[in-house]
Simulated assay, not measured.
Amino acid sequence: MKYDKDKVKESLAIEDIHKILKDLGSENNQWDQQGNPIYRTVCHNASGGSYKLYYYHEAKQFHCYTECGDTFDVFELVIRAKGQKGVNISFNQAIEYVAKAVGKTFGFGNRTTYINNDLIDDWEWIRKFKKKKRINIELPSFKETVLDVFMPYPHQSWLDESISHKTLKEFEIGYYFRSHTEGITIPHRDLNNRLVGIRKRSMIQEEVKAGYKYMPLKVGNILYNHQTMMNLYGLNKTKSSIGRLKKALIFESEKSVLKCQDFYGEANFTCAVCSSNISNFHRDILLSLGVEEVFIAFDKYRPLKEDETEERYQEKLVEYQKKILKLAAKFTPYVRVFVLWDYEDLLDYKDSPVDKGKEILEELMKRKIEIGTDEGGI
């Protein structure tokens, strides 16, 4: 049977998602403050996952807030979860799995009519070139009074990284200290300057070692989390430069945006995804600002692990490169796309392209690699 993937996905209610996740091994979900279900991760582990897999019903997207750091739909989740259990399935098989799991009957029936899937794919590719309209999704906002709880003082560790007092104040960076938590506070605002979330850079070593270096901040009974896949950090400050210069440079972390604010001031055309993924929402936000050039400036890949062979490491490195190309492919039908890649060992492992200073960043910009439509389609 042939299933219409879009109809299947759009038809899924929260109860359907619960059923699918239970079948994949993630039961007894939790809920966030906005009413989004949170599941145990099954995307990168076969069992024993933590409650870091969020589902955003309006967007029909999952986001893993731990090892993956990715945003994906239900079909990709099925592929990943099955793969963790040693079962490799195709995209079409994932669609069929979802449809059958929740009893959906969308599709072309049991007819033997020939379906030209290549032609369908071609039309889907052509539709990519339709001009993107300004997206209207608006994240929930929080009361500004919470900012009064934080100490308005910069942490010495960020000052040591040459981020100025002026920039830290301009971006409202503060510090939160209670008996159970401690960290640098990073308010997130949307294009309209609404407070949509607050992240914390933990200063508790146990949390950092456990993989919780950056996380949503909880104050009292309120968790100030937000859908990072629907917002780009720093745009409330840099959107004018991005619109004027028609360029956008995308980093992974907030700190990189702050450093570029000190480097370039009113000419700062950067933003951050706060993960290792670029969502379609990120893309559409930037396209709505009229960008003509996009630069992907993600962190340098990790070093070789102690128990890892060189051959395995090279395989993982190639996977990372392919991932960057797939992210670039989100933009290639609309604008020129470049990737900053450190071939000359100008950076240390896991460095942001900005971490070694302005000169190194600009050297990497000179050596940027343009990604064409064919390359991005890998």
Rank of each mutant, 00 (worst) to 15 (best):
A248V: 02
D342I: 01
F106S: 09
W123V: 02
E375C: 10
R283W: 08
I278K: 02
K316E: 13
E370W: 03
Y97T: 00
F295W: 15
I95S: 00
R127A: 09
K104A: 08
G109R: 03
V354T: 15
N193G: 04
Q34E: 08
V257P: 04
A13N: 10
N117L: 12
A297E: 10
D348Y: 12
L249V: 05
P154C: 01
G35P: 03
Q93I: 00
V146S: 13
P152E: 02
L325G: 05
T181A: 15
E172C: 07
D262V: 02
C271L: 02
F108C: 00
S241P: 06
P303R: 09
K237C: 12
S141F: 08
V102T: 06
I79Y: 02
A81I: 06
L12A: 13
D148N: 15
I120F: 12
K356C: 07
E170P: 05
E206N: 13
L235E: 12
D118H: 09
V294D: 15
K200H: 06
K213Q: 04
M229F: 14
R80E: 10
K330F: 11
P154S: 03
I324S: 14
F142Y: 15
Y175L: 04
K366V: 10
K22N: 07
E144F: 12
V8Y: 05
D374S: 14
I250S: 04
C260R: 03
D284W: 09
S288N: 06
M203A: 09
A99K: 08
E207Y: 14
G220D: 10
S241I: 01
L364I: 06
Y153W: 02
R111C: 03
L77F: 10
R244M: 05
K19F: 08
I198S: 08
R40E: 12
E27K: 15
Y153I: 11
V257G: 06
R201N: 04
Y153A: 03
S276I: 11
N110T: 09
W125Q: 01
I38V: 15
A267P: 01
N28W: 07
L168S: 01
K358Q: 14
L304H: 06
W125I: 00
P333T: 13
E67G: 00
T309Q: 02
D262K: 08
D348V: 01
K300V: 01
H18Q: 11
L245D: 10
F106A: 08
A248D: 07
V339P: 06
N88W: 06
I135N: 09
F269R: 01
V354I: 15
R189W: 02
F171Q: 01
E310D: 09
E306D: 13
G25M: 11
D6M: 00
T373C: 13
G377Q: 07
T112D: 11
A297N: 11
Y153T: 10
K130C: 03
F150Q: 04
P333W: 12
A46C: 14
C68S: 07
D16L: 03
T113Q: 06
P154F: 04
D23C: 00
S275G: 15
I198W: 05
S279A: 03
L289G: 10
Y55A: 07
Q30P: 00
C68I: 00
R367P: 04
V208A: 13
